[in-house]
Design a protein around this nucleic acid. Sequence first.
DNA 1: GTGAAAGCGCTAACAG
DNA 2: CTGTTAGCGCTTTCAC
Lengths: 338, 338
Amino acid sequence: MSRRRPKPTIHDVANAAQVSVPTVSRVLNNRYGVAPQTAARVQQAILELGYESSLAARGMRGARTDVIGLIMPDMDHSYAIEVIRGISRAVTGTKYDLLAMTCGRKLPEERGVWEQQQIQRLSGTIVDGIILVVPDADEFRTDYPLVVVDPYRQSTACPSVIGANLEGAAAAMNYLTGLGHRRIGFVGGVRHLQSAERRYQGYTEALAALDIALDPDLVATGDFERDGGFMAAQQFFALDDPPTAVFAANDESALGVMDAAVAAGLRVPHDLSVIGFDNVPESAFSRPALTTVDQSISAMGEAAFDMLIQLIEGRPLESRIKRIPTQLIIRDSCGAPA
Amino acid sequence: MSRRRPKPTIHDVANAAQVSVPTVSRVLNNRYGVAPQTAARVQQAILELGYESSLAARGMRGARTDVIGLIMPDMDHSYAIEVIRGISRAVTGTKYDLLAMTCGRKLPEERGVWEQQQIQRLSGTIVDGIILVVPDADEFRTDYPLVVVDPYRQSTACPSVIGANLEGAAAAMNYLTGLGHRRIGFVGGVRHLQSAERRYQGYTEALAALDIALDPDLVATGDFERDGGFMAAQQFFALDDPPTAVFAANDESALGVMDAAVAAGLRVPHDLSVIGFDNVPESAFSRPALTTVDQSISAMGEAAFDMLIQLIEGRPLESRIKRIPTQLIIRDSCGAPA
DNA sequence: GTGAAAGCGCTAACAG
DNA sequence: CTGTTAGCGCTTTCAC
């Protein structure tokens, strides 16, 4: 470690083995036309020098790298973690390595360009294909294999994996109304995010089906984070006629609503029913355990990986859009209205 | 998206802006000596073409990439996730991007070489420095900035971040013996992993301090996973004189022990006390909540990032080994022996 | 079978 | 201020 011993290059190997650079390249890639003896000498040199080819250089020459890229805005929230888990599992046992990138700058307005940047910085050279999670942008200037998970808008521009948001929201609302709730609050997610919109749509449609007028006071704009749910709930509680149930557009928000409920001295589900969306691991451990709509995020990750491999290997895609079904998970946070 | 429009290169930009390639490179890197007018024309072309420089090509030319690499054997288990979280948080707000790699091939014997491979494949070109998590290998052939998290053995070869495993284990054991336990089982971790060894050492030393003979029947070799804990516990329960408490070398094993306890009809902590190590998020949600030693894995990740940045930016390291302290978290899984 | 030459996209050193 | 020349580490023709 003391002296700066530069990483051995293919050149060093060639020298050590007394052959030319292309020959080393050939044995590296198991090409035909190398004498067994020569190959052995090269292998020997590789071992001795501890040589390993540079991903960058190799990729630049157009060769496949057997690495797939995952680009996501953060690797901190449960949603992101679950996607990573799914893809990580899918990668296991394949020849592919997984390369996940996330950015330091967290300002939303920088995100869109960041995504685009990363795609181009990586594509074609470093990775063979890319999975993009919850992209801010809608369209991408690339023709490399690219699969989008849970896009903003449902464009057919890229092959994508989406959740059955509308159906899931309908199931949640039906469950709540079936329990007898009529005043139901909704905590939304990031504005203009497709998944959030669809869940909202499920909310309004369910209300309409029962001829319940949409009360603007009962619709709060959250941010898909715990704090947003907390604040939204506080607004609800301050109402003259507060809701008896809250449908939050994702679990983190729902957990925030529950936090607000205990802070306000309300008991869940006795005084307030709460239902979430996503079924992130934490939802099973809240007190009471959160009733939610399982969106199987990790399954979305796995599906995205499968699609990407099809694309990379040039096999035809069954469909450009893969919809992952949703499932109502009934736990302890909902009951009949008091 | 229909036609294969190849990614624009610096060349295309140069053409479009009617300048030479190096000029484009200059404006790209905010170098001095470009006429404002020319620069504007280049910027214009960049925008129109949606150009973004290739990480691979840029890195190959020796320039800094402002990307730091994270190499880990998996991105699925809680431990790995926590490390990612910590580093991801540390990266936030800095100019660095984070690139995390995992491999598809999961066989342990392939791991050692895989790590070495990745380091060389990435270092110097694609990333400015690397954080390596729980490496199998002990020494690395690289002179690039490299920080190791929780290494196998405590070698001084690389700057590293380690947990206070011995102290933590001592705290756990003291707590158990303070409660009155004398027959305490130990579920170990992956053999030869330094952290597991140190925790075992804490176990034996605590026993020795109380003049309790080490009973081989009470020491099981786990694998740091839930199943291993489960099986180890079953062995304990089958003993003529089963332990009244179990110290598991990590939380996942401890959770497995609790699973086995309920399967055997034992109540925790009434019939059996269980204590873990790590304080992964799940441990707070088990029933009963797991008493454990907080190892602040995400803090280890953050510390590793900080050290790496020092290395990259050429600032002197305070110390080559950073030890992250440990803290006993008392929850509900331990009590006095029956 | 093997080496020489060319070029991937980019930047650094030099001219002009 | 800007263009020309070289070369990073590697693979791919194409000769020999």
